[in-house]
């Protein structure tokens, strides 16, 4: 338990820094132009600064409002597993084709809670790959490569 809303302070800080970087990047990399002929930097610059301002406001409000706040639990393992499975799909889809990408991804992602045995994981992966084949290739006829080898 904390007496301040640390989530808001952290989130606000990210927005403030991010907004400033965004705005400054626009200022340094793009032309600003004039009001009647605005160039590519003007609008993003202000959006960035407004975002930073709102982030600062969130921090201030969090500092003013005291109360009881719990620190959140972060499921690192689940997060990492799910993200890695998305990465596997993204990496494989154009290299090995869709079917191997799905099978690898599903097997991997089901480690997130690890409730299935390895055999069941493989079966689930194959069933889902077949389902995707039916929906996307047979049903919709999308021009996707089922199997491929491009490394």
């Amino acid at each position: 338990m904390h007496s301040r809303a640390y989530r808001d302070i952290l989130g606000g800080a990210v927005l403030t820094v991010g907004g400033l970087l965004y705005g400054i990047y626009a200022y340094t990399h793009y032309e600003l132009g004039t009001m009647s002929a605005m160039d590519s930097g003007m609008f993003p610059m202000w959006v960035g600064y407004i975002l930073a301002g709102l982030g600062a406001l969130i921090i201030v409000m969090a500092l003013v409002n005291k109360g009881e706040y719990a620190w959140p639990v972060i499921e690192w393992r689940t997060l990492a597993t799910v993200l890695a499975s998305v990465a596997i799909f993204a990496f494989c889809v154009r290299r090995t084709g869709v079917i191997p990408a799905i099978i690898l991804q599903v097997i991997f992602v089901s480690f997130a809670d690890n409730k299935l045995s390895m055999l069941k994981k493989v079966i689930l992966a194959c069933v889902l790959a077949f389902l995707a084949y039916l929906i996307f290739k047979v049903g919709l006829g999308l021009p996707i490569h089922l199997f491929d080898w491009q490394f």
Partner: peptide
């Protein structure tokens, strides 16, 4: 849910991929 969530992740990935045939969009999902 342990059968459902792998399916959700799969559909999200292939769905996003198929919109523009773009693996980059799947990296954006990440």
């Amino acid at each position: 849910y342990h059968l459902l969530y792998p399916a959700i992740i799969m559909f999200v990935c292939i769905g996003v991929y198929s919109v523009h045939n773009s693996a980059f969009d799947v990296w954006l999902v990440l």
